[in-house]
Write a protein that binds this DNA or RNA. Structure first.
Lengths: 334, 334
DNA sequence: CTGAAAGCGCTTACAG
DNA sequence: CTGAAAGCGCTTACAG
């Protein structure tokens, strides 16, 4: 392997000091003659020199790298968030160290340590289930995504899931449904707590009784939704089903079809997220939009804010959801 | 911000030299007394010291970081590949710098430069459309994914798409279809060239004429498949449609439903990839499996091989596909 | 068994 | 207008 060209080489070639080369390359070269500058730039060009990242960082301490921890890179919601983060970071010449925690708090802890060790400028943490992780963050800026429950008052990027979910349950009630089920996450996690509370509250506000047998939980995946719906349909005589997210709704579709249940005639379904694919289902899914890309983009934006202005508060953001009316809900005549 | 603790601090605290601390921490400390070792470990523990990443790298030149460039992180196929890469890397204490090129060769070029500048140990490049990028790679190990056309004889991870696609066209013919359409990528890209060639060859081998009006191209996304199918159905009287990938097939489903065309009775559809979701469509999609996770996992494995044994050839891998029979194809009686 | 010193490739405060 | 020298935080070849 060829020896890497260094600033010293460039200095020797041009016949100046490394100071001169360094200053010129870092745009602090007002004081140098145009001629010197040109010679330096030409040599840099010719030998394709670029300053060594590690050496530069050792003195400047600016890694221009952000770490991001997600529970599942293949999750349709999170991959959109990642896209948003990467897009902003890229514009600012930052890069993304991506960590996939597979929903494991233990792995998240390990990643935080590794990322700190690599001197990332900050960490974007999308973890619905690890309150105590924050203590690990020491002096590093961090942003929390998808994380209603936490102990800090800044750097939270949230979605008003409560209102979003409440509205969809209300929509079902207004459409004439009275036996409304729900698919939520497994016990132990609390990512969908807001949605579950909204479900119960909306029922109550409209004089409908809460039946625990109308609720089923499971992994918040397509397959999880499939299994949960299959179980639910065995025991519950419901006319509508609110799914904790779109992936579960996709599983619910299949469970219904398996049993010859027609959507929306026999069973109405509502999702949550508005993944691109839901507009292409048969029938197209009525759902609630969360701005996944924007969430990621904003998280990255706030991250850089936190990095560049360490003394200022990191902003918080609360996104509102949007009800997306499609064709998976039956409206009863009155 | 607290001053970061250095090896010098630890050395002072314990009352030894930095040499001693360094040797012990790097497991080269056989020669030191058990007592010294314990004292060092205790101090390290107590002050939560870990060697500075940049300083360490400046002397050791081992970034333990791999760069990966994908055309679209939200693509269901690529996100599975990313998961595979991350999984292997994580096991080996490497980290992943992820770059999303949005299908732009120009961005890919920029990322390669940035990644090299950051001294990554290697680059995994998933780019179906940029032959000349390889020249940029200079002395860095790299692995090519999803990339039939290239100029190198090592480090290629390929899937036998030709056979996979040929087989599904053959399946349609065997099922009695004679008017078989295809959805492929936009002109200019050549990621699906193998599949297109297989389609034409299979038709020919079975005495079926190739009709260019039975073929439509577009972006290889859900929406792309939707639009392409809508156009195709306007002009072509086909009984079956081979889609370049599953995402396009999902779009094709919707285009068909929009027009009251029933799958598989009025139109048979076959996809490619076997994304998890395809088993949950209505009807479940017959498709061809590509081992996306394994592809990523193996790419990472070969990457580390290339890093650790720079003088050896990087292996190549050719994955075979698997036909996944579900319910989206009508079989005619003979 | 242990440490002083050189060196990795940069940037920067300082002197001229 | 320019450069010599110190320093960033490590590891390692060498000397004792």
């Amino acid at each position: 392997m060829l020896k890497k060209i260094t600033i010293k080489d460039i200095a020797n070639i041009v016949g100046v000091s490394t100071t001169t080369v360094s200053q010129i390359l870092n745009n602090k070269g007002q004081r140098f003659s145009e001629e010197t500058k040109q010679k330096v730039f030409q040599a840099v060009e010719k030998y394709d020199y670029s300053p060594d990242y590690f050496a530069k960082n050792m003195v400047q301490r600016e890694s221009r790298t952000v770490g991001m921890i997600v529970p599942d890179v293949t999750d349709l919601f999170f991959s959109k968030v990642i896209e948003g983060v990467e897009t902003y970071l890229n514009r600012k010449d930052y890069m993304l160290l991506l960590c996939n925690s597979k929903h494991s708090t233990e792995m998240e802890r390990g990643f935080i340590k590794q990322l700190q060790n690599r001197s990332v400028a900050g960490i974007i943490l999308a973890s619905p289930n690890a309150l105590e992780l924050e203590k690990k963050m020491k002096h590093l800026p961090y942003i929390l995504i998808d994380r209603g429950l936490n102990t800090r008052e800044q750097g939270n990027i949230l979605v008003n899931e409560y209102d979003g979910f409440y509205n969809s349950v209300k929509y079902l009630i207004d459409a004439g449904h009275t036996k409304i089920g729900m698919l939520t996450n497994e016990t132990g996690y609390y990512e969908m707590t807001d949605r579950f509370v909204a479900y119960q509250k909306c029922l109550k506000d409209h004089g409908l009784e809460f039946h625990s047998e109308f609720v089923e939980d499971g992994p918040v995946t397509i397959h999880g939704g499939y299994v949960a719906t299959r179980e639910l349909l065995k025991r519950a005589d419901i006319s509508a089903l609110c799914c904790g997210n779109d992936q579960m709704a996709i599983g619910a579709y299949r469970a219904a079809f398996d049993q010859g249940i027609v959507i929306p005639d026999d069973l109405s379904i509502i999702g949550f997220d508005n993944l691109e694919i839901t507009g292409y289902l048969n029938p197209p899914l009525t759902t609630v939009e969360q701005p996944a890309f924007d969430i990621g983009y904003t998280a990255a934006e706030y991250m850089l804010h936190a990095i560049n202005f360490p003394d200022k508060m990191i902003p918080n953001k609360l996104y509102q959801t949007k009800f997306i009316l499609r064709d998976s809900v039956k409206v009863f005549d009155r």
